[in-house]
Design a protein around this nucleic acid. Sequence first.
DNA 1: TATAATGTTTAGTCTTGACTAAACAAATAA
DNA 2: TTATTTGTTTAGTCAAGACTAAACATTATA
Lengths: 151, 151
Amino acid sequence: MTKKAQEVMDQFIEQKGMEYQAEGLPRIAGRLMGLMLIEDGPFAFGYLAERLMVSRGSISTNTRLLENLGVIERVSKPGERGDYFQLSADPYVSLLSGINLRLKRALTNARQARGGLPKTLKNAQTRLAGLEAFYEGFIENNERLIQSLES
Amino acid sequence: MTKKAQEVMDQFIEQKGMEYQAEGLPRIAGRLMGLMLIEDGPFAFGYLAERLMVSRGSISTNTRLLENLGVIERVSKPGERGDYFQLSADPYVSLLSGINLRLKRALTNARQARGGLPKTLKNAQTRLAGLEAFYEGFIENNERLIQSLES
DNA sequence: TATAATGTTTAGTCTTGACTAAACAAATAA
DNA sequence: TTATTTGTTTAGTCAAGACTAAACATTATA
């Protein structure tokens, strides 16, 4: 491992941390993703804490978060006591599925509002229909991308 | 305006507030969007504060936030001193453009990392390529949706 | 001139959540 | 049995940000 490669890796890990933070997620969750993208797994629980220089509590919390998002999974090694983690088989499919879940909820809200308003409120009806069209297009895009990514 | 219609509107406004909060944005920003989607604009600054029962400072902050996202715009009325706000012509196009900006930054980060790592790190190269493919697909989808929404 | 209205900024409060250290429970190893 | 190890939970600290009230600057109006 050259020194330059190490630097590239460390920088990538920190960048992923900042990207996650910008999306409203914990920075450590992003750094975990960065690490698991750029180094070969599976990763021991203790290694993650040491490598990222954070507490075991933070590893516990953030690995669970990423597990719930479906982008990593907890695995075991025969004869080993500790937990290991690795990227999911289709991390981006899981991610897109989660996004679509929230989008569908918002779409339902919009439809219910439109249905509950009198037809005479033309402008509101039109704006809500536009909102629905946006959600529908976005959801459909995601579903198509899921198809194309599914291995 | 029937009582039921009022309830549907109020509920929609609050739902939008919660949706925004779930995305890591201020709840008031979401309530502003909900209001502007369901009532006819343009909306006077003071009306927004009264209708949503929040301080003028919060209206000032959150209208600026939504302006920066490109989903609403500040307008003036001839002969009137106060500011008015209304939905942008293409609010979702602006939204998608902002998303794509961040995605493109992340894509650049991934490409730079992959380029900076030795080709011999086969697995890292493969995972980064997968990440790039995901970003590229997502970006392309958004661009297509932008096209279809553009009025 | 005062007086009022308008939007921004500032100061301060309060909540939330990210994070750590330490206690803990459970399992293994000595 | 007693150590250790491992992951979770708890208690507490710290920082960030959402929000309000009030001060402020600006502009219009009386």
